[in-house]
Each structure stands twice: as C-alpha cells, then as structure tokens.
C-alpha cells in the first residue's frame, strides 16, 4: 500500500492542476496570476498547470472580493473539484475585502465564509513569486499521504 502511496505522492507533487476563479476582482490579481505563466516565472516548470476546468483541478485560486452574485456559484465550483482539493485565496480581497471592506460596497468578503481556504496570499496584488511559492508550499501539505490521512 505504501508503494502505491509513494507513487501517488510523487505524481501529485509533480502535476498540480490549477483552476482560477475571479469572484469580483479589480483585474490586478488576475494579471499577476497571468504573469506567473510568463517565461520570467514560468509556473509550468514546477509542474503547475493552469486551466480553468474545476473538474480536473487540484488547486482553486480564488481572486477578488466576493460579490453576492458569486456566492452560490463559487460553492458550486468548489464542489465540482474532486478530492483532494485546496483553495488558495490570492490577494487581500478574498482575505479581508481590502479597500472594499467598508460600508456601502456590494461585496461580502471574506471568501472563507463560503468555502474552506487552505492558504492565503496577502498583497494588493501579491507578487507572482508569492503566488507561486504559496501554491508550491500548500499543495504538498494537503496531498501528501492524502489517503492515509483520510483513514
């Protein structure tokens, strides 16, 4: 059993599939996630693949202060991701609402209220390096020996 688990660990740490969902962001964090793909940071050299299909994702990047329209859709997306899964909040908005966390704004941060968040990357916006290292450090924590931990 442990050999199978080792293989699973090795495979999972080498291919992390990422889906990202923008729940009402100002575009700043979006473009920084996009910048991770640029040759400068080259997210794929770490075995992280970005594509926006929750059905085949492991990591969900949540961007933006949550607008009321997104609440149920975000939950649906989260439920579509197969286990094991993690959500990473990118930027201040999903963590605290940032500058939108005041009266009179039509946002309902934080995103933790709706789906469990495994890691937060603060910053407005965070640097691509910070996003990268967050994904790299949180994913193994969840995926390593996932089946063992479930028992």
């Amino acid at each position: 059993m442990s050999i199978l688990q080792d293989i699973k660990n090795a495979v999972r740490s080498r291919s992390i599939h990422v889906a990202y969902v923008d729940v009402g962001s100002c575009n700043g964090c979006d473009i920084e996630v996009l910048a991770c793909l640029a040759p400068r940071y080259d997210i794929e050299q770490y075995g992280i693949y970005v594509h926006n299909n929750p059905r085949e994702a492991d990591v969900l990047l949540v961007i933006g202060s949550v607008t009321p329209q997104w609440v149920d859709k975000l939950r649906d997306i989260w439920e579509k991701i197969p286990e094991p899964k993690v959500a990473v909040a990118i930027g201040n908005c999903p963590i605290s609402g940032c500058v939108y966390a005041r009266r009179g704004t039509l946002t309902t941060p934080p995103v933790e209220n709706y789906i469990p968040i495994a890691a937060q990357v603060p910053g407005c916006p965070p640097r691509p390096t910070e996003i990268l290292s967050a994904i790299l450090s949180v994913a193994p924590l969840i995926y390593k020996d996932y089946e063992e931990k479930q028992r």
Binding site: L34, A35, L37, A38, P39, R40
Partner: peptide, 12 residues
C-alpha cells in the same frame, strides 16, 4: 507568453 515576458521588463 513571450509578450508577457516583455511586459515583465516594463513592470520592472
């Protein structure tokens, strides 16, 4: 993607 690399230079 290569255009994004040029963008990195601008952001620098």
């Amino acid at each position: 993607m290569y255009l994004l690399n040029t963008r990195e230079t601008v952001l620098d």
